[in-house]
């Protein structure tokens, strides 16, 4: 196993702090892209897609850490994340449908009742 760790371009990934940093960066970048999407897009569905994207990013980080520490906690957690994401997707989509019927639009800006 030590050999594996020393080999470049290894499969599965031979984790070092630097490799972890690569994965974490990808995770953070994906999260940020999701964030930007959530903040800029006005289509409710796309906004929900962006939240899924952020879940995704979190998943990458979790699995990378799981690999780094060579245990299964991270992966277990990703399962739960997936569960929640699925629940969220179901509810969110139901909501989207519901809202769409009300306003005939998917725009999040159509809903501004909380305006002060």
């Amino acid at each position: 196993m030590v050999d594996l760790l020393l080999a470049q371009s290894a499969f599965p990934e031979a984790m070092s702090q630097h490799v972890l940093a690569h994965y974490l960066f990808v995770s953070a970048a994906m999260f940020t892209i999701g964030l930007v999407g959530f903040l800029t897009r006005r289509n409710l569905i796309i906004m929900f897609l962006c939240t899924e994207m952020m879940f995704q990013a979190a998943g990458i980080a979790l699995i990378a850490f799981s690999r780094f520490h060579l245990n299964y906690e991270g992966q277990t957690f990703v399962i739960f994340v997936l569960t929640v994401a699925a629940a969220e997707a179901a509810l969110a989509l139901a909501l989207v449908v519901f809202l769409f019927r009300k306003r005939d639009s998917l725009s999040a800006e159509a809903w501004a009742e909380m305006k002060g």
Partner: peptide, 18 residues
């Protein structure tokens, strides 16, 4: 004064949160 910050639009709240 603070009122405009409550635009009622989800995005602005999210931006604030971020």
């Amino acid at each position: 004064l603070l009122r405009p910050s409550q635009s009622g639009v989800l995005h602005s709240y999210a931006t604030g949160m971020v």
